[in-house]
Structure formats: structure tokens, C-alpha cells
Amino acid sequence: MMNSQQISVLTAAQRRPLLFRKLKNKVLSVFSLFSVVLAVGGMVWILCTVLTHGAQSISWEFLTSPSKPYGEPGSGIANALLGTLMMTGVATLLAVPPAMAGGIYLAEFGQGSRLAAVLRFCANVMMGVPSIIVGLFVYVLLVVSTGNFSGFAGAVALAVIMFPVVMRTTEDMLSMVPVTLRESALALGMSRARATLCIVARSARNGLVTGVLLALARVSGETAPLLFTAMFADAWPGGFFSRPTASIPVLINEYTMNSPFESMHAAGWGAALIICLLILLINILTRSIFHEKQH
């Protein structure tokens, strides 16, 4: 197969004049450079817009006062920021321990087993489920059954999104640990549980932290699953289990999409800047942790 491929390449090359081929190559190279500039330029453009618009509305008061009802000046984002931190925190607590245990099952006990293959497939599929569908699911599960929107429902929705991501990265990171390490731990007389938790998981520690942080970065910007679960409120997150709780992404949606007021748009840009900074910070942190490991 390889031979016939090479021959076809050779004959194809003979049929075309050299100059034409070189020209085509140049054109493609320019197009390729152009696409990279487009992708990176798009990012720079978006971030610059967020930075220039957002920087104007950032102030101490903006960061420390809660949001106000429509049309009232001087609203802040403190309640939404707190809500986002609470919801992502609770989601992490709910999702990470079982997801890691699941990842351990796939990596340590599930090599070659059919059940593990099915579960792995389910996790991959789950990563592709649109986040708004997860919102609908949790709405039925928690909001309908308890009768009110709550920050907790939002946290559960975020946890459902985090779960497969953390599970798959845990599995990938654990399978990168050399088998010899496992064998030597077992040869010393350790139990399987002890060897997994103290030796294998420990040597993959940086990778695991990276996985969790990336999942965290992903869910902290999620809006769609929070629309029907945590909703939005112009108040400090009081009853986490019983009342709607504000979050930065939903605040951005409320302030820009559903509001005609110029001052609210400005506040929306400020909130966008804050969430972007938060996510970029997590990403940079992840990079440095992962980089450390490679040395």
C-alpha cells in the first residue's frame, strides 16, 4: 500500500511542471500563515475589545457592591462573583472525587474489560452533550422537584459537565505512569488500593491537578446550563439551596442581551473582563504546573 502510494506521488509529480508546483506550494503556505494570523488575530481582537471596554468600568466599588435592578446606576458585580465562586467550588467538590475514582477504575481495573470500554465511550459522548441540555436535565431533576431555582441546582449542572472531563483526564494521566512503578509497589507487598493511591496517583499528581483546573476553567464560563437552574438575582447569594443565585456569565447575558441601558452594557464588559482574567489565570497556572512536570 505504501509502495503504490509513493508511486502515485511520483507519477503525479512528473505530470506537472515544476514552476506550477512551487507556485501552488507558495500560495498554500501564504494561506496557511493567513489562517494562523486569523485564528490568533481573532483572539487578540476579542481580548482587546474586552480589555478596553472592561477596564473603564473596573473600580473598587464595582467589585465590592452587588448588582442593582434595571436602570439604577452604580451597580456592581460582587454578588455574581461570589455566586460564581460558590457554584464552581461546590461543583468541584461534587464532581472531582467520584470522577477521579471513576478514572482510576478505567485506568487500573478496566484495561481490556468490556464494561470499561462502554463507560469510556459514555464519558466521551457525555463530553459532547450540549451544555443547555444538561441545564434542562438538572432543571427537571432539581428545580421541578424542589420547586425553586437555586444556586445548588446550578452547581449540580456544572458538576455534571465537569464529571466526564475529569474522569477522562484522570484515566489518561494514570495510564501514562509506567507499569514498572505499579509492579514494584505491589512487589513490596502493598495492597492494590494503597499502590494506586500512594504511588500511581502521586506520580501523576501534576497531570491530575491540570485536568481539574482545565475542567474548572471550562465550567466557570458556562452560561447556558445556569439559565434555568441558578437563574439570576440582584441580591447577595443568601439561600444557596433555595434561592436563585447570580453568576458572572448569566450577569453578562442579563446586562448586555436583555438591557437597553448604556451603563449596564459597561458593567457587562467589566464582568466579561473579570471572568476572562479568571480563566486566563487558571490556564496560565495549568501551563506552569504542567511545564514543571516535564523537567
Binding site: V36, A39, V40, G42, M43, W45, I46, L47, T49, V50, H53, A217, R218, S220, G221, E222, T223, A224, P249, I252, N253, T256, M257, H265, G268, W269, A272, I275, C276, I279, L280, N283, R287
Partner: peptide
């Protein structure tokens, strides 16, 4: 660095894209 940039582009929340779309 280019790979980093591409990864960062994937990390920007979609609501920011929407907002940028609406205002720019």
C-alpha cells in the same frame, strides 16, 4: 506559543464571543 494561543482561544467562554458579536 502558537499552540498556546489556539488553546487559549478555546478557553474563552462562549458568552464573551456572543457579547463581542453583538457589540463589534
Amino acid at each position: 506559543p502558537l499552540s498556546y494561543c489556539v488553546d487559549l482561544l478555546a478557553a474563552i467562554p462562549s458568552v464573551i464571543y456572543g457579547m463581542w458579536g453583538l457589540f463589534v
